[in-house]
């Protein structure tokens, strides 16, 4: 009896301390959403979690001060594009590295993986001139090309390779017997079997692109071409004054949908990151 009581007390203590620890993880979200409904004055007044006056108009004004809908769409379509291209390229290259025998495969692997150590700050300056030469300044081109071919793309390739290596070969052998070409085997057999890895790459890549900040900051200059992170950091009025309440309303609009998707698919998303981390 006392033994069980002690166990229960211990568990309650654990839960309590975890809950306290969770405060700084949860509070910023609650505060952000609640402040999105407040006036600028109230945000800086006595802190309350429930707004005294609910200003729904903040969420309308967000769209008036910047082409926010356009910026939202930019982020969305760029992230989708990057995700699709990364999926195709990384699974192709990953498959070749895992399954096909060719001279230099090991070296190529080492070569690619070394990219994971290089911060993008190192290559951003020459890339600036490269993009200028390609005529891609102030377009979305760099925001697609750099994530796809930079360290992130390499990480995706590596992740796919690790997954393919661990797959059983029998089905592919059978496919070969049936006369499928290499590309056929990749498309009909290998890809359907690697759904978890593809999902992981898709999730991580989407979020990576969605949250990208340095590249848009450097490569994009017109307001209607901004992506969300850039737009959020730029909520100022005509004179460059920060519009606090609108900034927080816009931040809520940018974060909450992602958060909802995360809450729905949290297991899948967390596993995706676990996969990428352990293997990359």
């Amino acid at each position: 009896m006392t033994q069980r009581g002690l166990e229960r007390l211990k568990r309650a203590m654990w839960t309590l301390s975890l809950s306290v620890l969770a405060i700084p993880f949860v509070f910023p979200f609650l505060w952000m959403v609640s402040s999105g409904f407040k006036s600028a004055t109230e945000i800086f007044g006595q802190p309350t979690l429930i707004p005294r006056v609910w200003r729904w108009t903040n969420f309308v004004e967000v769209f008036q001060y910047q082409p926010f809908a356009q910026q939202y769409f930019n982020s969305l379509y760029i992230a989708c594009l990057v995700t699709v291209i990364t999926l195709v390229l990384s699974s192709l290259a990953g498959y070749a590295l895992a399954r096909m025998r060719f001279a230099g495969a090991g070296l190529l692997m080492l070569f690619l993986v070394s990219a994971l150590m290089v911060p993008e700050e190192v290559t951003i300056i020459p890339n600036f001139f490269l993009m200028r030469w390609l005529g891609l300044m102030d377009t979305h081109g760099p925001l697609v090309l750099l994530p796809v071919f930079g360290p992130h793309g390499v990480m995706a390739t590596f992740l796919m390779r690790q997954y393919f290596v661990a797959l059983p070969k029998e089905l592919e052998e059978a496919g070969k017997m049936d006369g499928l070409s290499r590309i056929g085997i990749w498309w009909r057999i290998a890809l359907p079997m690697s759904r978890p890895a593809l999902a992981a790459v898709a999730i991580i890549t989407f979020l990576f692109s969605w949250n990208l900040f340095l590249e848009p900051l450097v490569f994009v200059s017109s307001l209607e071409k901004f992506t969300l992170p850039l737009a959020l950091s730029n909520f100022t009025d005509a004179y460059g004054l920060p519009l606090w309440h609108l900034q927080l309303a816009a931040t809520s609009l940018a974060v909450v949908p992602i958060l909802i998707v995360y809450l729905i698919a949290q297991r899948q998303i967390i596993e995706s990151f676990a996969m990428s981390g352990v293997k990359g």
């Binding site: 600036f128 993009m131 200028r132 030469w133 005529g135 300044m137 102030d138 450097v218 490569f219 200059s221």
Partner: peptide, 9 residues
Amino acid sequence: LTFQLAGGN
């Protein structure tokens, strides 16, 4: 602005 000037646009 400098990016646009230096960036060929």
